[in-house]
């Protein structure tokens, strides 16, 4: 339901504008504040009363981020892990979603419940057994210790999104392709795959964001200095008693850049993916 703004009275419009401004400011202000902090000098931070805009903007902190810790390596680690887990997740989810959306199965309901129930397991409880599994497989401090779990954690939401998407593609298209001589797989490849691309992009973005942001497993499984991911890396700048906030803020900004880019480009897709989860339940 989309109410038309132009039908409202003048005062209602003013209230709406104010409310919208509050909404936007609310979403954005922490990031703005962190950015401002990141270009200040350490000295300036300890002034009372605090300053809002830096007296002399100093972007040196950003260079320092890479010098104080192997942040470029962290970034690479996160990039590889998030990308590969996303690819794995979306592929597996697409298979499952196709089965759930298209094939008439008696146990379809149970499968859906299992998939949703899996997202209800407290992940923090799984740390120890997963740690032992990873140690047994020799995957600790490698990329795989995170790729496989991350793919699994995003599996429920990706399957949900893709199932909703596949259900929206008319069956007749496949039937037509098969009447024209395609096999089952052929119909899948030539008809479904091109049409499902938007849904796949949406599911991929959701999986990527979840993987990029994950902290607990990354902290526990990949503790070797050169295998850490970016969220873990950000916490390293804190000393025993010192908190170099400009440095930490710069690291935070760098961490968020890929996500910001994704949001700005794909906001429509992300929202449609998240809201599809709400509608289909």
């Amino acid at each position: 339901m989309n109410s038309q703004v132009r039908d409202k009275t003048f005062w209602q419009k003013i209230m709406i504008v104010v409310a919208l401004v509050v909404l936007v400011v609310n979403g954005v202000y922490p990031l703005v504040w962190i950015f401002l902090t990141s270009i200040k000098n350490e000295l300036e931070l300890t002034q009372v009363p605090i300053t809002y805009f830096p007296q002399t903007p100093n972007f040196g902190n950003y260079a320092q981020v890479f010098q104080a810790q192997p942040f470029a390596r962290f970034f690479l680690n996160s990039l590889v892990i998030s990308s590969l887990s996303t690819v794995l997740c979306v592929t597996v989810a697409a298979f499952a979603a196709y089965a759930l959306a298209r094939l008439r199965l008696r146990y379809r309901r149970i499968i859906s419940i299992i998939i949703v129930a899996a997202s209800m397991f407290p992940i923090v409880s799984l740390i120890v057994p997963l740690f032992q599994i990873m140690r047994g497989l020799g995957w600790l401090n490698t990329y795989w210790s995170l790729i496989i779990p991350y793919a699994t954690f995003s599996l429920p939401i990706s399957t949900l999104v893709l199932t909703a998407f596949f259900q929206g593609i008319p069956e007749d298209l496949e039937s037509a392709a098969m009447i024209d001589g395609c096999s089952r797989f052929g119909a899948l490849w030539r008809v479904i795959v091109p049409l499902a691309a938007p849904g796949v992009v949406t599911a991929a973005i959701l999986a990527f964001v979840n993987s990029w942001n994950e902290f607990l497993l990354a902290l526990t499984f990949n503790s070797a200095p050169d295998m850490k991911t970016v969220p873990v890396g950000v916490m390293l700048y804190q000393g025993e008693f010192s908190f170099p906030w400009p440095l930490i803020s710069a690291a935070i900004i760098i961490t968020i850049i890929p996500i910001m880019v994704l949001i700005l480009i794909f906001q429509r897709r992300i929202i449609s993916g998240l809201t599809a989860g709400g509608v289909k339940g």
Binding site: N2, V24, G27
Partner: peptide, 28 residues
């Protein structure tokens, strides 16, 4: 849900808190 010209800004403002890593939100 309202139809305004600034929908993309509203969407971004809504997505930002969701997209930010929790650990970073906590630190901020």
């Amino acid at each position: 849900n309202l139809e305004t010209g600034w929908r993309w800004l509203v969407r971004v403002a809504l997505l930002l808190p969701w997209a930010m890593p929790q650990i970073i939100t906590g630190t901020m």
